[in-house]
């Protein structure tokens, strides 16, 4: 029975793969007018990197919802009653500790760099948050602790939602001033984007960190 089922799955997926290859080879693509529209509006976006402009300005609403998606996993993880708290296991590995001593400060620096460079080159809140969360994980593995003890899960809550809350606050402000949702005035767009991205960096790093057992 199982052998037959396996063969059927393999055969089916082969057919799917061939159909997909056929489809992608035969796409008659249109003129790249959307990319041109992005370059055309870039000057008003507050940043000079087109991808950041799309993520934090032209399609900022998608990013806002995506941050909400990112919030779901740590919330659900916290909501499920656990049988025993995950025990912190310091490894006492001298190599790991030496690595952490060098890499963690560098990672912090790199995260800040990535956050700031996002306006003009590849980078931004998501990259910075991933590096920051990586530094926290390394710290945890090397020393058995990472976040300060006073930052209990309950007290982490405001930090966890900070990015999304800033995003929402800017959105409400733009609506209440009679504009469009998340429609930044061009003069303020750069500042708004940096504020939102800074909050997102902290919140997303914490969200990623919270997923570690």
């Amino acid at each position: 029975m199982r052998v037959v089922a396996h063969r059927l799955i393999v055969a089916g997926c082969t057919v799917v793969g061939l159909a997909l290859v056929y489809a992608v080879v035969n796409v008659q693509g249109p003129a790249p007018d959307l990319a041109l529209a992005v370059s055309g509006a870039l000057a008003e976006s507050g940043v000079s990197h087109p991808v950041t402009a799309v993520l934090l300005n032209f399609r900022a609403y998608d990013t806002l919802l995506e941050v909400a998606v990112m919030l779901v996993a740590p919330l659900v993880a916290a909501a499920l009653p656990t049988t025993a708290p995950a025990p912190a296991k310091p490894t006492n590995d001298p190599v790991l500790q030496a690595l952490a001593a060098v890499a963690v400060p560098l990672a912090l620096l790199l995260a800040i760099y990535l956050l700031l460079i996002g306006a003009s080159r590849s980078g931004g809140a998501f990259h910075a948050a991933a590096v920051l969360a990586g530094a926290l994980v390394l710290l945890q593995l090397a020393t058995g602790r990472s976040l300060p003890a006073w930052l209990t899960p309950t007290r982490q809550q405001p930090l966890l939602i900070l990015g999304l809350a800033l995003f929402c606050a800017v959105g409400w402000l733009s609506l209440l001033l009679g504009g469009y949702f998340l429609g930044y005035p061009p003069a303020w767009a750069g500042v708004m984007i940096l504020v939102i991205e800074s909050g997102l960096t902290l919140s997303l790093a914490l969200a990623l960190w919270r997923l570690m057992p």
Binding site: P32, L34, A35, V38, P50, V51, A53, V54, L55, R59, D62, T63, E66, V69, M70, V72, A73, P74, V76, A77, L80, F126, L208, L211
Partner: peptide, 26 residues
């Protein structure tokens, strides 16, 4: 490369990370 496609992919990656994280937590 098309900046919109790049932005969509970044969004997609974050969504995939969130889904993976939730599944692992469960």
């Amino acid at each position: 490369a098309d900046p919109v496609a790049q932005a969509l992919i970044l969004t997609g990656i974050v969504v995939a990370v969130a889904a993976t994280g939730l599944a692992l937590a469960l």
